[in-house]
Design a protein around this nucleic acid. Sequence first.
DNA 1: GGAGAACGCTACGATACCGTAGCGTATCGT
DNA 2: ACGATACGCTACGGTATCGTAGCGTTCTCC
Lengths: 198, 198
Amino acid sequence: MAGPPSPATEATVDPRVARSRAAVLRAAAALLIEQGAGGVTIEGIAERSGVAKTTIYRHWKSRSQLVFDAFESMLPSMPPQDYGPTLRGQLCGILNQLSRGLTQSEWAPAVPPLIDAGDRDPELRQLVQAFLVVRMERCREALRAAMVRGELRPDLDVDVAVGVLAGPVFYRRLVSREPLSEAFVAEVVDQFLRSGAP
Amino acid sequence: MAGPPSPATEATVDPRVARSRAAVLRAAAALLIEQGAGGVTIEGIAERSGVAKTTIYRHWKSRSQLVFDAFESMLPSMPPQDYGPTLRGQLCGILNQLSRGLTQSEWAPAVPPLIDAGDRDPELRQLVQAFLVVRMERCREALRAAMVRGELRPDLDVDVAVGVLAGPVFYRRLVSREPLSEAFVAEVVDQFLRSGAP
DNA sequence: GGAGAACGCTACGATACCGTAGCGTATCGT
DNA sequence: ACGATACGCTACGGTATCGTAGCGTTCTCC
């Protein structure tokens, strides 16, 4: 009689542990969003999450470890999506999703702190990097597919293209703080397409 | 007999005051650059500048005031420059200067903290804004002049164009962290010109 | 239902800052 | 030279975190 209902091969997690971890990460992410990188303190997390400071230290060696995990926990969540058959539609869809994510999503306020923190902490840098690369991978795929179809110049540098497309969106969000409308995105995409014709 | 050698109409500043102020601002800027926004503390500035904490408080009401002044003190310094007669040369020159400023200048490390801080503090936001707007004004001028000369489509939106040009540079510096070469800048400019032809 | 793990609470000592006060000294302006 | 001013030093009281320890309680898992 092997263990029937209970676990199996993998380690089963004590629900108390899972609950504590989740609550802590949620609180840490919320603090990051609301108060920036400087606002993420163990004591603040403890108060907000209802998890005792002692327990937090039982799970994480140091604050930086916790902050790292908190960042990581808020990164996933990108629904796969169908952007339609045309390159223009795909690029507009991706960039609009990006611009909404940067301005209206729950984690939008965390973007500047993440960029700042990433500039100083190598581990974090890598994490943020990976997050963004994944997001922009969609863009790359669309561009490569279009090149195969002959809709773009065959000598187009995909990395440059991604920068040309996503750059203006980030620029408005982080630097000029001008409004990020769909019209702006469409204009950026159209300019790109005009310059990238084969 | 009016005061002959001494001042005159304007307030003459006690050299001791000038010296303290300068030392404090220099130290504050250095701390900002080295340790980010969180590293700028009064005690740190006092230690580093050799100016007593008491004296600092004699000059600045609050820390945020001081931080503001420190930011401001490091912003100026943009040598006027001749970028040549062609639009392409002008845009490449401006963007190359921007990219060097973002990656190699002494204040380059302060950029992410400034962007982060600007997202939370309205006063700072305005300051950083102004700083960047001034820098990009060169770009606007060049674009408008080219439009007058008929080298660009007359319906070109200058604000969008600035975003399309500067965006990719900021993107590489802040987001993707890919190298910022002159070749990249040239590619961005060329793509823009190709799409902006009249 | 019982052993053991996880948890919450309280309390510490240690730092790092804040912003202020008092007092003696050095420097400036005239 | 001398009064005014700016400065440095030391010392506070106060707040916010850190990271740890002890101890009793509650929940899990078998």
